[in-house]
Design a protein around this nucleic acid. Structure first.
Lengths: 194, 194
DNA sequence: TACAAAGCAAAACACTCGTTATGTAAATGA
DNA sequence: TCATTTACATAACGAGTGTTTTGCTTTGTA
């Protein structure tokens, strides 16, 4: 077995960064083997060595998107209750260039997810996880009396609906949704829940 | 000038239906000249005669999507107040196969809209119009005392956020969002506004 | 030190894409 | 009737796609 394993993982990380840059610039619709290869300064030969098919590349891109989103997710322990819920929802909004970039990639991925059953179910699981995390924070806020009672899962589904829809509108019409208004709308939504 | 004008418009309608069927089956990502042409039982020569470039075809597809969505929109006069708002929001949810199909096309169009500035601003105007219509119904409900006071435009932006996000989640995870739950969540949202 | 496998580059294959001639039949207006 | 314009079919072009093949170089193992 030639080459040490560390090299392989390191090179895979290089590929991941190239994939991310392509996604950020052209979205999922612009993700192609050659685009990633040239972004990496290599050929498709290298790419197929790590990802034999485009399907594998897309799967990796989705995992990468999930991973980088999770990395910016605030710790659930910090500031429990309603403040924790607000913090978690705030991190999703495209109020900063960085989260706006991530949001654009998410939205562009829905076209792929809806067209392919496997990627679709993968997405379904991801958003179900998001609802679960929101549900936990909502339940905690309810236990503290900071939030009105009600089915936490339903409230989480509604909250994530509000979030995703606001992300879409803000990305499609940035002038109408500056960061301040996004936060204002979020606080307005949270106020109705209290 | 040969050929009567009626033929031209009639043929254009045929093309429109072919475009719609392609969109319904493969989304905006699968919209190609040849796909529409073969769906119509013709060649690309016909298509380029009516839509010289793909850009024109996409523009037409977006107009078609807008038109068919507007056709299913309930009349604003019927059942004024909160019931009118509920009716309008209900029509957006993918609770029926027909509206689910339309919703899938909308979601798939966002990838194209985010990648192209012109299509993006076109979309921005469409959703701004949607917010204005919601705002009018919200203001009417407030005037009737059926809704708590507050900035109608902000409430409309929040309501459309909730709607779009629920559409996305329901389309990506149909088992978790059957029609009954969609309606239940919508009624829960409206209850918090009252 | 030989052998074998990994890590790539380079190139070709078989498409599909949007676009662009070219040609032809029909219908209209002069 | 005759020239013109419409309404296509047919075909090709060049670019881009995912995938496969071939081969060279490097590295680790026996």
């Amino acid at each position: 077995m030639p080459r040490i394993k560390g090299d392989h993982e390191a090179r895979r990380r290089d590929v991941s960064e190239a994939v991310w840059r392509v996604l950020a610039r052209h979205g999922f619709g612009g993700l192609s083997m050659r685009a990633v290869a040239t972004e990496l300064g290599a050929t498709t030969g290298l790419l197929t060595h790590y990802f034999p098919s485009k399907r594998d590349l897309i799967t990796h891109a989705l995992a990468l998107l999930d991973e980088r989103t999770a990395a910016r997710r605030p710790r659930p322990s910090a500031a429990p209750g309603l403040a924790s819920l607000r913090e978690a929802m705030l991190a999703v909004l495209p109020a900063t260039p960085e989260s706006a970039g991530t949001g654009r990639i998410w939205v562009s991925s829905w076209d792929t997810a809806l067209a392919d059953e496997q990627f679709g179910s993968s997405h379904a699981a991801r958003y179900a996880g998001g609802r679960e995390r929101l549900s936990a924070r909502i339940a905690a806020a309810q236990a503290l009396g900071e939030l009105a009672p009600g089915d936490a899962d339903d409230l989480a589904a509604a909250a994530q609906s509000f979030l995703l829809g606001l992300v879409v509108q803000a990305l499609l019409d940035p002038p109408s949704f500056p960061a301040a208004r996004q936060i204002h709308l979020l606080d307005g939504y949270l106020a109705t829940l209290a």
